[in-house]
Protein backbone atom coordinates (compact mmCIF):
# COMPACT_ATOMS: atom_id res chain seq x y z
CA UNK A 1 0.00 0.00 0.00
CA UNK A 2 2.71 2.45 0.88
CA UNK A 3 5.94 1.23 -0.60
CA UNK A 4 7.05 4.66 -1.66
CA UNK A 5 5.52 6.35 1.38
CA UNK A 6 7.37 4.14 3.82
CA UNK A 7 10.63 5.38 2.35
CA UNK A 8 9.96 8.77 3.93
CA UNK A 9 10.25 7.75 7.59
CA UNK A 10 13.17 5.49 6.81
CA UNK A 11 14.96 8.48 5.36
CA UNK A 12 14.09 10.48 8.45
CA UNK A 13 15.27 7.64 10.66
CA UNK A 14 18.56 7.52 8.85
CA UNK A 15 18.98 11.25 9.31
CA UNK A 16 18.05 11.52 12.94
CA UNK A 17 18.67 8.07 14.40
CA UNK A 18 15.42 8.14 16.34
CA UNK A 19 14.76 5.95 19.37
CA UNK A 20 11.97 4.00 17.70
CA UNK A 21 11.73 0.26 17.42
CA UNK A 22 11.59 -1.60 14.12
CA UNK A 23 8.32 -1.15 12.33
CA UNK A 24 6.98 1.45 14.76
CA UNK A 25 6.93 4.45 12.45
CA UNK A 26 5.75 2.34 9.56
CA UNK A 27 2.87 0.91 11.60
CA UNK A 28 1.64 4.30 12.81
CA UNK A 29 1.76 5.60 9.24
CA UNK A 30 -0.32 2.64 8.09
CA UNK A 31 -2.85 3.13 10.89
CA UNK A 32 -3.06 6.86 10.12
CA UNK A 33 -3.63 6.19 6.43
CA UNK A 34 -6.06 3.36 7.02
CA UNK A 35 -8.22 5.37 9.42
CA UNK A 36 -8.17 8.67 7.55
CA UNK A 37 -8.51 7.30 4.02
CA UNK A 38 -11.41 5.08 5.05
CA UNK A 39 -13.10 7.90 6.93
CA UNK A 40 -12.67 10.31 4.03
CA UNK A 41 -13.91 7.73 1.51
CA UNK A 42 -17.04 7.18 3.59
CA UNK A 43 -17.48 10.92 4.11
CA UNK A 44 -17.23 11.45 0.37
CA UNK A 45 -19.85 8.78 -0.19
CA UNK A 46 -22.24 10.74 1.98
CA UNK A 47 -21.13 14.28 1.21
CA UNK A 48 -21.17 14.19 -2.55
CA UNK A 49 -24.79 13.11 -3.00
CA UNK A 50 -25.87 15.48 -0.26
CA UNK A 51 -23.99 18.32 -1.93
CA UNK A 52 -25.49 17.50 -5.32
CA UNK A 53 -29.01 17.20 -3.92
CA UNK A 54 -28.75 20.46 -1.99
CA UNK A 55 -27.05 22.13 -4.94
CA UNK A 56 -29.79 21.06 -7.35
CA UNK A 57 -32.73 21.67 -5.12
CA UNK A 58 -34.40 24.94 -4.38
CA UNK A 59 -36.18 25.00 -1.11
CA UNK A 60 -36.87 27.47 1.64
CA UNK A 61 -34.19 27.37 4.30
CA UNK A 62 -31.48 26.29 1.88
CA UNK A 63 -29.25 29.06 3.17
CA UNK A 64 -29.82 27.82 6.70
CA UNK A 65 -28.86 24.27 5.73
CA UNK A 66 -25.67 25.62 4.20
CA UNK A 67 -24.94 27.53 7.39
CA UNK A 68 -25.39 24.36 9.43
CA UNK A 69 -23.00 22.46 7.16
CA UNK A 70 -20.48 25.29 7.32
CA UNK A 71 -20.74 25.37 11.09
CA UNK A 72 -19.90 21.68 11.12
CA UNK A 73 -16.49 22.55 9.73
CA UNK A 74 -15.75 24.16 13.06
CA UNK A 75 -16.59 21.18 15.26
CA UNK A 76 -13.80 20.85 17.82
CA UNK A 77 -12.35 17.40 17.35
CA UNK A 78 -12.22 16.77 21.09
CA UNK A 79 -15.96 17.31 21.35
CA UNK A 80 -16.59 14.97 18.43
CA UNK A 81 -14.33 12.44 20.15
CA UNK A 82 -16.35 12.71 23.36
CA UNK A 83 -19.64 12.29 21.52
CA UNK A 84 -18.34 9.21 19.69
CA UNK A 85 -16.92 7.93 22.99
CA UNK A 86 -20.35 8.14 24.60
CA UNK A 87 -21.80 6.31 21.61
CA UNK A 88 -19.31 3.43 21.49
CA UNK A 89 -18.56 3.13 25.20
CA UNK A 90 -19.83 -0.09 26.70
CA UNK A 91 -22.43 2.04 28.47
CA UNK A 92 -23.42 3.75 25.25
CA UNK A 93 -25.99 2.88 22.56
CA UNK A 94 -23.39 1.09 20.41
CA UNK A 95 -21.63 -0.47 23.39
CA UNK A 96 -22.47 -4.05 22.42
CA UNK A 97 -20.40 -3.67 19.25
CA UNK A 98 -17.28 -3.25 21.42
CA UNK A 99 -15.86 -0.51 19.26
CA UNK A 100 -14.13 1.45 21.99
CA UNK A 101 -10.35 1.69 21.43
CA UNK A 102 -10.58 0.33 17.90
CA UNK A 103 -9.71 1.78 14.52
CA UNK A 104 -13.36 1.54 13.57
CA UNK A 105 -14.25 3.98 16.36
CA UNK A 106 -11.53 6.29 15.10
CA UNK A 107 -12.99 6.08 11.60
CA UNK A 108 -16.38 7.04 13.04
CA UNK A 109 -15.07 10.17 14.68
CA UNK A 110 -13.02 11.22 11.66
CA UNK A 111 -16.05 10.57 9.48
CA UNK A 112 -17.98 13.06 11.58
CA UNK A 113 -15.12 15.54 11.33
CA UNK A 114 -14.44 15.17 7.61
CA UNK A 115 -18.02 15.16 6.35
CA UNK A 116 -18.86 18.87 6.91
CA UNK A 117 -15.85 20.30 5.03
CA UNK A 118 -16.27 17.82 2.16
CA UNK A 119 -19.97 18.60 1.93
CA UNK A 120 -19.52 22.36 2.17
CA UNK A 121 -16.71 22.62 -0.37
CA UNK A 122 -18.37 20.14 -2.75
CA UNK A 123 -21.57 22.15 -2.47
CA UNK A 124 -19.72 25.32 -3.39
CA UNK A 125 -18.15 23.49 -6.36
CA UNK A 126 -21.51 22.14 -7.51
CA UNK A 127 -23.10 25.56 -7.09
CA UNK A 128 -20.31 27.00 -9.20
CA UNK A 129 -21.17 24.83 -12.21
CA UNK A 130 -23.11 26.84 -14.77
CA UNK A 131 -26.84 26.01 -14.73
CA UNK A 132 -26.61 25.64 -18.49
CA UNK A 133 -24.62 22.44 -18.10
CA UNK A 134 -27.39 20.77 -16.17
CA UNK A 135 -30.10 22.12 -18.44
CA UNK A 136 -28.20 20.90 -21.49
CA UNK A 137 -27.85 17.41 -20.02
CA UNK A 138 -31.58 17.25 -19.33
CA UNK A 139 -32.41 18.74 -22.75
CA UNK A 140 -30.36 16.02 -24.41
CA UNK A 141 -32.63 13.45 -22.79
CA UNK A 142 -30.52 12.69 -19.76
CA UNK A 143 -32.06 11.58 -16.52
CA UNK A 144 -31.57 13.46 -13.28
CA UNK A 145 -28.73 11.04 -12.54
CA UNK A 146 -27.06 11.83 -15.86
CA UNK A 147 -27.32 15.52 -15.14
CA UNK A 148 -25.86 14.97 -11.66
CA UNK A 149 -22.92 13.02 -13.06
CA UNK A 150 -22.22 15.71 -15.64
CA UNK A 151 -22.27 18.39 -12.96
CA UNK A 152 -20.03 16.30 -10.70
CA UNK A 153 -17.61 15.87 -13.58
CA UNK A 154 -17.59 19.60 -14.26
CA UNK A 155 -17.02 20.28 -10.57
CA UNK A 156 -14.32 17.62 -10.15
CA UNK A 157 -11.51 20.00 -9.24
CA UNK A 158 -13.58 21.62 -6.54
CA UNK A 159 -14.65 18.19 -5.33
CA UNK A 160 -11.05 16.99 -5.28
CA UNK A 161 -10.24 20.04 -3.18
CA UNK A 162 -13.12 19.12 -0.90
CA UNK A 163 -11.82 15.58 -0.48
CA UNK A 164 -8.32 16.85 0.22
CA UNK A 165 -9.65 19.33 2.76
CA UNK A 166 -11.52 16.50 4.45
CA UNK A 167 -8.43 14.33 4.38
CA UNK A 168 -6.34 17.14 5.83
CA UNK A 169 -8.85 17.60 8.61
CA UNK A 170 -8.95 13.87 9.32
CA UNK A 171 -5.29 12.97 9.28
CA UNK A 172 -4.15 16.02 11.22
CA UNK A 173 -6.64 15.89 14.07
CA UNK A 174 -5.49 14.50 17.37
CA UNK A 175 -8.28 15.14 19.85
CA UNK A 176 -10.88 12.60 18.85
CA UNK A 177 -8.64 9.69 17.83
CA UNK A 178 -6.82 10.02 21.14
CA UNK A 179 -10.09 9.72 23.06
CA UNK A 180 -11.81 6.96 21.11
CA UNK A 181 -8.69 5.13 19.94
CA UNK A 182 -6.70 5.16 23.16
CA UNK A 183 -3.31 5.62 21.46
CA UNK A 184 -2.50 1.91 21.75
CA UNK A 185 0.52 0.03 20.49
CA UNK A 186 1.36 -3.57 21.20
CA UNK A 187 4.20 -4.31 23.59
CA UNK A 188 6.55 -4.84 20.66
CA UNK A 189 5.84 -1.35 19.41
CA UNK A 190 3.44 -2.03 16.54
CA UNK A 191 0.58 0.42 16.40
CA UNK A 192 -2.97 -0.70 16.96
CA UNK A 193 -4.72 2.64 17.34
CA UNK A 194 -1.79 5.02 17.40
CA UNK A 195 -1.67 7.50 14.57
CA UNK A 196 1.02 9.97 13.61
CA UNK A 197 -0.82 12.72 15.47
CA UNK A 198 -1.27 10.79 18.69
CA UNK A 199 2.33 9.58 18.45
CA UNK A 200 3.39 13.24 18.18
CA UNK A 201 1.23 14.06 21.18
CA UNK A 202 2.83 11.21 23.12
CA UNK A 203 6.35 12.41 22.31
CA UNK A 204 5.44 15.98 23.23
CA UNK A 205 3.91 14.83 26.52
CA UNK A 206 7.22 13.24 27.37
CA UNK A 207 9.08 16.37 26.42
CA UNK A 208 10.70 14.66 23.43
CA UNK A 209 10.15 17.67 21.21
CA UNK A 210 12.76 16.74 18.60
CA UNK A 211 11.28 13.32 17.87
CA UNK A 212 7.82 14.92 17.91
CA UNK A 213 8.97 17.35 15.24
CA UNK A 214 10.42 14.59 13.10
CA UNK A 215 7.12 12.71 13.26
CA UNK A 216 5.44 15.99 12.35
CA UNK A 217 7.66 16.20 9.26
CA UNK A 218 6.63 12.64 8.36
CA UNK A 219 2.99 13.67 8.67
CA UNK A 220 3.50 16.68 6.41
CA UNK A 221 5.33 14.52 3.87
CA UNK A 222 2.48 12.04 3.95
CA UNK A 223 -0.17 14.72 3.38
CA UNK A 224 1.95 16.13 0.58
CA UNK A 225 2.21 12.71 -1.05
CA UNK A 226 -1.54 12.11 -0.82
CA UNK A 227 -2.23 15.56 -2.28
CA UNK A 228 0.13 14.86 -5.16
CA UNK A 229 -1.62 11.56 -5.85
CA UNK A 230 -5.08 13.12 -5.83
CA UNK A 231 -4.02 16.05 -8.00
CA UNK A 232 -2.43 13.68 -10.48
CA UNK A 233 -5.59 11.61 -10.46
CA UNK A 234 -7.58 14.75 -11.14
CA UNK A 235 -5.38 15.62 -14.13
CA UNK A 236 -5.73 12.11 -15.53
CA UNK A 237 -9.47 12.45 -15.16
CA UNK A 238 -9.33 15.66 -17.16
CA UNK A 239 -7.55 13.90 -20.03
CA UNK A 240 -9.81 10.86 -20.02
Amino acid sequence: MSVSLAATPELALALFDLPFRDGYVRSIILVSLYVSVTAVALSTLVSLPVAVVIGFADFPGKGFVKSVVNTGMGFPSVVVGLVVLFAVSNQGPLGSLELIFTREAMIMSQFVLATPPITAISLAAVDGVDDGVRDAARALGGTRLDAALVVVKEARYGIATAVLAGFGRAISEVGSVLIVGGNITSADGISKTRTLTTAIQLEARQGQYETALVLGAVLVALVLAVNAVVVRFGDRGAQG
Binding site: M1, S4, A41, T44, V46, L48, P49, V226, V229, F233
Partner: peptide, 20 residues
Protein backbone atom coordinates in the same frame (compact mmCIF):
# COMPACT_ATOMS: atom_id res chain seq x y z
CA UNK B 1 -1.45 4.19 -3.62
CA UNK B 2 -3.42 2.21 -6.16
CA UNK B 3 -5.76 1.34 -3.37
CA UNK B 4 -6.33 4.97 -2.57
CA UNK B 5 -7.03 5.73 -6.19
CA UNK B 6 -9.35 2.78 -6.43
CA UNK B 7 -11.15 3.90 -3.30
CA UNK B 8 -11.43 7.38 -4.69
CA UNK B 9 -12.91 6.03 -7.91
CA UNK B 10 -15.16 3.72 -5.91
CA UNK B 11 -16.21 6.65 -3.77
CA UNK B 12 -17.14 8.73 -6.78
CA UNK B 13 -18.93 5.83 -8.44
CA UNK B 14 -20.84 4.88 -5.34
CA UNK B 15 -21.66 8.51 -4.76
CA UNK B 16 -23.44 8.55 -8.09
CA UNK B 17 -25.38 5.44 -7.17
CA UNK B 18 -26.37 6.77 -3.78
CA UNK B 19 -27.48 10.01 -5.35
CA UNK B 20 -30.17 8.10 -7.20
Amino acid sequence: MTIQRREFVAALGAAGIVST
